[in-house]
């Protein structure tokens, strides 16, 4: 009788109303847990309040300037807050131009690099290439700025000149004051342009995009990959019909993430570009502007009202980067690679 297990007799002891009352699943926390949860909740709330404070403070400070100008803030291109004439038309346009140049240069390179790492490179090389891309993302922006100012600018001026000579009829590539037919024309019309700043920013954006895309491409289901090979596809054929469609969300998301970073870049742009305050679509032409370099240039000499105007410009930039980043994470989360698929 010792070695038999007896089950408790449930039948007789059940509650009269048809079954045992459900056990409460909510555990009572002991004191240690309560202190612990209090602590982490507090830290969460502190972080929340800091972040909300930054946003709210910027908004409140900016509102003073915004109230005085109203909607003309978006259309004015000058920046003379003490005379009451200021707006972000030219600086925001400059920011967007630099970011677009950066992304359009970085996108093909980062996508090809990501595909090279996941599909083409021999296995023994892969981890070191991944480390190199991460390293590229970690190099400080001031180093890229110095590189762009002292090395790249000299190399890019002939490129600008060439593009202007042969594609100058496109409004984008026009340069006012440049004469492509005269071989002795000065190179100074091509220096410090949005194009050169954009190339430098592309260097910073490229690794960010590449990391996201590589992550997505490495999640391509092996089954689909091998299915394509089994149907006789070449490697590029497989990439075209399997990898790229699978990673579309990651490609778009990574690109936008890089765009968000490019919009906010300060130091490299500040080093390279020479500020100007007019609507200028010509990316190859000398001079340009961006919101963050405007803030870095003008914060110290600004009066109270001028600072408020700078904050309004910063807030506009933040709104743009916020939209871009949230769109990016929406695309990444919605992509197929986000959901688990058969391997």
């Amino acid at each position: 009788m010792l070695d038999t297990t007896t089950l408790p007799d449930l039948g007789e002891t059940a509650a009269p109303d048809g079954g045992p009352a459900p056990r409460p699943l909510k555990a009572r926390r002991n004191r240690g847990d309560r202190i612990f949860f209090g602590g982490v909740t507090l830290s969460g709330l502190v972080v929340l309040s800091i972040m909300v404070a930054v946003g709210l403070f910027l908004a409140i400070q900016a509102s003073q300037a915004l109230r005085s100008t109203g909607l003309s803030f978006l259309t004015t291109s000058e920046w003379q807050p003490d005379r009451g004439k200021f707006g972000i038309a030219s600086v925001l346009l400059g920011t967007v131009l630099i970011a677009l140049v950066a992304v359009s240069i970085a996108l093909p390179i980062s996508m090809a690099t990501a595909l090279f790492i996941t599909e083409v490179a021999p296995t023994w090389l892969r981890s070191s290439l991944v480390a190199l891309v991460d390293l590229m993302a970690a190099v400080p922006s001031v180093v890229y700025g110095l590189w762009g100012l002292f090395l790249l600018e000299g190399q890019l001026i002939p490129v600008s000149r060439w593009v202007n000579t042969f594609f100058g009829w496109l409004p984008f590539f026009k340069v006012v004051g440049a004469d492509p037919n005269s071989p002795l024309s000065s190179a100074s019309v091509y220096t410090a342009s949005a194009f050169i700043a954009g190339v430098v920013v592309a260097m910073m954006v490229m690794p960010i995009q590449c990391v996201v895309m590589r992550e997505v491409f490495s999640q391509v289901p092996v089954g689909e990959r091998e299915g394509a090979f089994a149907l006789g596809s070449t490697r590029w054929g497989m990439v075209r019909v399997v990898s790229i469609p699978f990673g579309r969300g990651g490609i778009i998301g990574g690109t936008m993430l890089g765009l968000g970073r490019a919009l906010g870049e300060t130091i490299a742009v500040l080093l390279i570009i020479s500020p100007r305050f007019d609507i200028n679509f010509h990316v190859l032409e000398a001079g340009g502007n961006s919101v963050s370099s405007l803030i870095a240039l003008r914060y110290s000499e600004a009066s109270g009202f001028g600072l408020s105007a700078l904050m309004a410009a910063g807030l506009a930039l933040f709104a743009v980067t916020l939209v871009v980043n949230f769109t990016a994470s929406w695309f990444v989360a919605r992509s197929r690679s986000g959901a688990g698929s058969e391997a």
């Binding site: 930054v54 968000g260 906010g264 700078l310 933040f318 916020l322 949230f326």
Partner: peptide, 18 residues
């Protein structure tokens, strides 16, 4: 927090400066 990763670094500086 996700939104704040989009904060341009210069704005963090401007916030503390102000």
């Amino acid at each position: 927090v996700t939104a704040m990763t989009a904060l341009p670094s210069i704005l963090a500086g401007l916030f503390i400066f102000a």
